[in-house]
Design a protein around this nucleic acid. Structure first.
Length: 319
DNA sequence: CCCATAGACCCCCTTACATCA
DNA sequence: CCTGATGTAAGGGGGTCTATG
């Protein structure tokens, strides 16, 4: 079955929205020097659309190194604590990246029931029993490396059946690299949905001759990679913001000093000047405007801060 | 209706292995 | 050939949510 079709079909049923919105940083700085690292923000999930902060590509950050690898469309995570998320979002499909705080750091010693989320739909009947780390580790093991000569492209992983897992011997786990084709299909699917519902997972696994668990793990790791890269972009953006604001601060301090000198040297002339406090400088466009004008335009006093940047990756924008 | 439990799914951190310079 | 760095598949802990008895 065609994965994309399945994705589209099941999306409604599972509410598998990607969320790619969210802002990982509550920066309202439309720094003029920031660059368009990208982007094509994916559609905010239905539930989350109102949360969407005004977003816009920034325009001067150079595309990071990973851009080639990642391609356009990186999700922009947020620092929203998991507990602040809507329930539906927290559970799975909707807001995978809306986290900034590790809420998992609970006191140790919580012996939990089966945390190994082994797939029930495992084809070979090697289903998991929760609480059984044995079954988990066994089923998760890879078959022979099947990789030689350094070329990964055409090897067909034997992980699908998992029947030859035991030949790894001694419990040492063997790693299997997914073929380029498999990775490409997974990547395409990830662009559509950064999470999978069970049907999609099973269909993908079948199509790629992998275990559903492998597909699930790939998506988990892919989300983690996306988040990591996004964090790097965020850091770069913050650095640029900091630099820009520092420079702006220096400039304003120089200006204040000049005005003080002017006030001392030519007090009469200075008296005819409008008080500086009535002026507002937009750090983005560097236009000078009266506070009242800004307030009229934006509904609040202050500079016309540009829209927030958004970096997106993952599922494509929903039409 | 409330509660406990099981199951599913997620994220995070870590480990182990493959690959490459 | 050896080795350190890097990438990534997978293991496991722990959190939340839903279904069920």
């Amino acid at each position: 079955m065609d994965i994309m079709a399945l994705n589209a079909r099941d999306e409604e049923q599972y509410g598998n929205n990607h969320l790619g919105l969210g802002l990982s940083l509550s920066l309202g700085l439309g720094v003029a020097t920031a660059a368009p690292v990208e982007v094509e923000p994916p559609p905010p999930p239905r539930q989350q659309q109102q949360r969407a902060i005004s977003v816009a590509p920034i325009t001067s950050l150079p595309a990071p190194q990973w851009w080639k690898w990642n391609g356009p469309g990186l999700f922009f995570g947020t620092t929203m604590d998991q507990q602040q998320q809507p329930a539906a979002a927290r559970h799975g499909h909707e807001m995978p990246f809306l986290r900034g705080v590790d809420v998992n750091r609970a006191p140790a010693g919580d012996t939990r029931r089966g945390s190994c989320s082994e797939d029930d739909e495992e084809p070979g009947g090697a289903s998991s029993s929760p609480n059984s780390t044995l079954s988990s580790s066994l089923s998760g093991k890879r078959a022979a490396p099947a990789r030689s000569g350094g070329e990964v492209a055409d090897h067909t992983p034997r992980a699908g059946g998992g029947s030859d897992d035991e030949d790894s011997g001694g419990g040492s786990r063997k790693k299997l690299r997914l073929s380029k084709d498999q990775a490409a299909v997974l990547e395409e699917s990830f662009k559509e949905h950064n999470t999978l519902n069970p049907k999609q997972k099973a269909a993908l696994a079948k199509q790629l001759n992998l275990k559903p668990r492998q597909v699930e793990v790939w998506f988990q790791n892919r989300r983690a990679r996306t988040k990591l890269k996004q964090t790097e972009v965020d850091c770069e953006f913050l650095k640029r913001c900091c630099e820009t604001l520092t420079e702006e601060n220096r400039r304003l301090q120089r200006e204040v000093a000049e005005l003080r000198v002017l006030k001392l040297v030519a007090p009469h002339h200075y008296a005819r000047m409008p008080p500086p406090t009535t002026l507002t400088m937009c750090p983005s466009c560097e236009r000078l405007a009266s506070a009242s004008a800004s307030a009229d335009q934006a509904g609040r006093a202050g500079p016309c801060w540009g829209p927030l940047p958004v970096f997106v990756d993952g599922p494509a924008r929903r039409p």
